[in-house]
């Protein structure tokens, strides 16, 4: 008996609109749907397979990140991407993308999956091994889908060895240009930090933080050369965590070269964070400020969308390519023709 048969049976019973949920830690970033029945996956929390030698694992979607991390630590392994909650929720929302340029994000770590269509029919995609090009990569659609395309039940993940040495750092109270220069200098390194973050605090000061990994000789040399200030791992990489309830949170993607224009498109005091992989978040004082910024972002080659705000505001953003949007809608219709998953 498959552990997910009961879900399949339930889905087949035409339960109406369904919202898949993990730990619920990111529920506030999703559109509010009142008539949807929640499908909680948090009880499906088994680490089904952990092949330390192959550096892959298979987990049920409800496994909490912290639990997986603990299991991996025993084998000197890690899942090298940011974000908490359940593994399913983390991959379905992909809140951070890659933590630094060239580092893996969820889309690079997902090797395959087992899933249920909204109709209850089970299917799989990808493979358990680190390399496979068999069939179409339907599992790639899970990343960022917020569970609206199908119900993923198990994920096959690629793992990485824990670095020999790691050092978290945070250089605070910097001027804007100092911070941008430090970011630039660190990116020039042949082996740059594996987490790299630029922050602007409410007081307008800037901070550059991140994680340098590798052999101790390398970590020491980078830290020394760039005068990086050691610190503990930050509790959160979100600006959203510190946002006031009256504020909107805008997020999107920006290239390093766009950072100056992006910063000048945002209100002076707006808390802001940008990860080396391209993702940014900004807390906007009011919706007019957001709209004004959204007007300017396309010229700077920056995409942006309201992540947190009132119901009507969520999802408002820079225009998406109409063709890509049509394909996305087509895929939704092909996989969930009745619009069950919301």
């Amino acid at each position: 008996m498959n552990r997910f048969d009961d879900i399949a049976t339930w889905l087949r019973s035409s339960p109406g609109r369904v919202r898949v949920s993990g730990s619920g830690s990111r529920a506030h970033t999703l559109p509010k749907i009142t008539d949807a029945t929640p499908l909680h996956l948090s009880q499906y929390n088994r680490i089904e397979r952990l092949d330390a030698g192959d550096q892959t694992c298979t987990v049920e979607c409800g496994v909490p990140r912290a639990e997986l991390d603990a299991a991996l630590a025993e084998h000197e392994l890690e899942l090298p991407c940011l974000g908490g909650g359940t593994i399913g929720g983390l991959f379905a929302t992909d809140p951070f993308g890659p933590a630094a340029a060239g580092c893996p994000g969820p889309r690079n770590l997902l090797l395959g999956m087992e899933a249920l269509l909204a109709s209850g029919s089970a299917f799989k995609s990808g493979a358990r091994v680190v390399k496979s090009v068999a069939g179409f990569d339907v599992h790639k659609l899970f990343v960022g889908s917020t569970g609206r395309l199908f119900v993923a039940t198990k994920l096959h993940l690629r793992l990485k060895p824990r670095p020999r040495t790691e050092q978290w750092f945070a250089n605070r109270a910097l001027e804007r240009d100092q911070a941008l220069q430090l970011i630039h200098a660190l990116r020039q390194e042949a082996q740059p930090p594996t987490v790299l973050q630029l922050r602007r605090e409410r007081d307008g000061s800037f901070a550059v933080g991140g994680r340098v990994t590798g052999r101790s000789v390398h970590v020491t040399s980078i830290c020394k050369q760039h005068e990086l200030a050691a610190c503990e791992r930050p509790a959160s990489f979100h600006v959203a965590a510190a946002a006031n309830s009256s504020e909107e949170v805008l997020n999107g993607n920006a290239l390093p070269s766009a950072l100056p224009s992006l910063l000048s498109a945002l209100p002076e005091g707006a808390p802001f964070t940008w990860l080396g992989g391209g993702r940014f978040e900004a807390a906007m004082p009011h919706s007019q400020a957001t709209d004004a910024a959204l007007q300017q972002l396309p010229q700077a080659n920056v995409t942006g969308t309201v992540l947190i705000g009132t119901d009507a505001r969520r999802g408002v953003g820079t225009p998406m390519d109409p063709g890509e949007q049509r394909l996305a809608e087509g895929l939704k219709h092909a996989l969930d023709p009745d619009g069950t998953l919301v």
């Binding site: 992909d94 993308g97 990569d137 993702r279 996305a328």
Partner: peptide, 15 residues
């Protein structure tokens, strides 16, 4: 150029 998928989109390019 900023990435294969926007934070609110799905990974059509990955597919």
């Amino acid at each position: 150029t900023t990435g294969p998928r926007t934070p609110h989109g799905i990974d059509v390019l990955g597919l």
